[in-house]
Simulated scan of single mutants.
Amino acid sequence: MYKSFYSLAREPFSKDLRPQDAFLSTDYKGALNALTYLQKSKGMGLLTGDPGVGKTFTLRAFKETLNPSLYHVIYFPLSTGGVMDFYRGLAYGLGEEPKFRKVDLFRQIQQGIERMAGERKITPVFILDEMHMAKDAFLQDIALLFNFQMDSTNPFILILAGLTHLKT
């Protein structure tokens, strides 16, 4: 009823909205441009915003621009678990059977990233969503886990996404 009243072709804010149907607001275009820069520079980025502004939609739109033969996307929204859950989730995302000890998992993940980027020439893209709920220990381990060759190279793309207070 409201669709015909407002002359809408489909439901606004639907979960099945495709990126090509998105309203190209200044904020949306800016976020996509920042993610594209991150893709080219290979590094770490932060995407924050208020609830419902379209952070995850923007991440989905960005993911669709990535060539699957050049990029392997690992989407991980489980930010309320422990550090070991985080490590296991990343290992699964890399196609690895997780080891049991933290030190072994740490090495397994780093080697998996290096193998994927070095041997297979595929850039792993880690999208960690809902990170505003993550514990401090979780966030501290991210800095350790994604440190390669004494912090001189990034063989991956890492995107942390969450509510605005994640910046603090």
Rank of each mutant, 00 (worst) to 15 (best):
Phe138Pro: 07
Lys121Glu: 12
Leu139Val: 02
Thr26Ala: 13
Ser152Trp: 03
Ser41Lys: 13
Glu96Ile: 10
Ile142Ala: 04
Leu46Val: 01
Gly49Ser: 08
Ser69Lys: 10
Val53Thr: 09
Leu32Phe: 08
Pro124Met: 15
Pro98Phe: 10
Met84Gly: 03
Asn147Val: 00
Tyr92Leu: 11
Arg120Gln: 14
Ser69Pro: 00
Leu139Asp: 03
Thr58His: 09
Gly82Ser: 13
Arg88Phe: 05
Met131Lys: 03
Leu59Gly: 01
Leu38Cys: 03
Gly43Met: 07
Glu97Val: 03
Glu64Val: 02
Phe138His: 14
Tyr87Phe: 14
Val125Ala: 09
Gly89Pro: 01
Glu119Met: 06
Gly30Asn: 08
Phe148Ser: 07
Ala134Asp: 04
Ile122Cys: 10
Leu128Ser: 04
Thr36Val: 11
Pro98Lys: 09
Leu35Lys: 07
Gln140Ile: 07
Gly52Thr: 01
Glu119Cys: 01
Ala61Ser: 10
Lys29His: 11
Glu97Ile: 01
Gly118Asp: 13
Leu94Thr: 08
Gly112Leu: 11
Tyr37Arg: 15
Phe62Pro: 03
Ala134Met: 01
Ala31Ile: 00
Phe86Met: 15
Phe62Met: 06
Ala34Phe: 04
Thr36Phe: 14
Lys55Phe: 01
Leu66Tyr: 05
Ala91Glu: 07
Thr48Ala: 08
Lys42Arg: 13
Gln39Ala: 06
Ala34Arg: 07
Glu130Val: 00
Gly82Gln: 09
Pro51Thr: 12
Asp141His: 15
Gln149Lys: 14
Arg101Gly: 02
Ile142Asp: 11
Gln110Phe: 09
Phe62Ala: 11
Glu114Gln: 05
Val125Leu: 08
Thr123Cys: 13
Pro77Ile: 08
Phe138Thr: 08
Pro98Glu: 09
Gly49Cys: 04
Met150Gly: 02
Glu130Asn: 05
Tyr28Ala: 11
Asp104Tyr: 04
Val73Asp: 01
Asp141Ala: 13
Thr58Ser: 10
Gly52Met: 07
Arg60Gly: 00
Gln110His: 04
Ala34Glu: 04
Ser152Thr: 07
Ser69Gly: 02
Glu114Pro: 00
Gln108Cys: 09
Arg120Thr: 07
Phe138Leu: 14
Lys121Phe: 08
Lys40Arg: 15
Thr80Val: 06
Thr123Trp: 12
